[in-house]
Design a binder for these strands. Structure first.
Lengths: 212, 212
DNA sequence: TAGATTGTTAATCGATTAACAATC
DNA sequence: TAGATTGTTAATCGATTAACAATC
């Protein structure tokens, strides 16, 4: 493992993109892949790819590149994507259903044990094979299942209240898809996915190109 | 408008969060809101909020803060969220349906004229009031509607091919929700929303806290 | 008025990029 | 071997934070 100071969040965010490219190389049967090739594919600088990959502990071979099999394992291990993490989905609307059915997450260890919703129509049904329960059984289920990870896709007015129930019941990590900044005990890890920020960026890019 | 060099993408991404806070102040009837208050609400540094808001051209009042009404207008105008932008949705699955029904986007000028899908079951139906057409009418519809913005939520194997059809038919901005790095004419603006990168970050945070 | 808050200029911090020796 | 590519150390770039005079 490199002892260098290494850029963090931005590098970690790029790793799944690398993994995607490297996986295709794996499928083509390539034994090695160079940082140069990965960079080309993603419109990045080769040096950036090398720096990023170094954080996983992978050792490349001059002239050849990185051993594909070992690189896939190194990235997945660094991300903890080689283990199973049980999770629940809170809010079984369209967005939640999309996430629960997204094959990449399941493939990378995110296993949904249950979903929760307020809609009586949905309770008792299943999304992508996962049973939907009522919100009233949320706290009890979390304790029974011993689950530590929750994906939060409820309407924003419910976000803070629901998050508090989650935290109290023992959830330690929340993937927050609402546009609410949650106020919780700092021991709970929160990753917020803010679609509005992406829309803001797209809007400004369009403005710069004088698009109506 | 400030002549300072100003941080770009990160600042723009924070503006919608500010807008959200400022809107609640507006609803409470406050005439002014200070950068300090906004910062507190979002766990940021006041100086960062002031720097970010400066890019919109807003002028604050020492001691009082920023005039709420004018600030809302300044942010929305800077983002171009005070005008209507016609768009289409390509891929009317769960994720696409979630986006098309997300009230924040409509409120900020994103108007979906049509959706497209390959599923014969869906063609002829509507999502959130928007008609779903077959993929074969995609190019023709884009030209007829004169629409320049597309939200891409097709399965990843279809992403590159579909994007090429969009670009050829006249689409100038693509909001890309697939995990594919699109290769297109650089005159087409692409904003990629990569859920895997957020999952990677959450995973590493969980690893750091020794969560299984 | 007194003092909280703004906007500006300067300093720091962190991430990206450059340079280059080592090497398969 | 010759040369493409790695990993490391140094330089640059950009974003965040600090300091502080101006001011309502």
């Amino acid at each position: 493992m490199s002892k260098n100071k290494v850029s963090f969040a931005p590098s970690v965010r790029r790793l799944p993109q690398y993994l995607h490219i490297i996986r295709s190389a794996q499928n083509t049967g390539d034994a090695y892949i160079s940082g140069t090739v990965i960079a080309q594919e993603l419109n990045l600088e080769p040096i950036q790819v090398r720096k990023d990959l170094a954080i996983t502990g992978i050792i490349g071979k001059p002239k050849k590149g990185y051993p594909v099999e070992a690189l896939v394992r190194a990235i997945e291990h660094y991300l903890g994507w080689d283990m199973v993490r049980n999770a629940i989905l809170v809010g079984a609307g369209n967005l939640g259903s999309a996430l629960i059915g997204y094959p990449d997450f399941e493939r990378h260890g995110l296993k949904f044990l249950a979903a929760f919703d307020t809609d009586p129509q949905k309770i008792g049904q299943r999304v992508h094979g996962v049973p939907i329960h009522g919100m009233d059984s949320l706290a009890r289920s979390i304790e029974e299942l011993g689950v530590k990870v929750a994906v939060l896709t409820v309407p924003s007015p419910m976000a803070q209240g629901t998050a508090e129930i989650l935290a109290t019941a023992g959830i330690k990590a929340i993937w927050n898809f609402t546009n609410i900044k949650l106020k919780l005990d700092p021991e709970v890890v929160v990753q917020r996915e803010d679609l509005s920020s992406g829309y803001a960026l797209l809007s400004v890019m369009m403005n710069n190109r004088q698009m109506g």
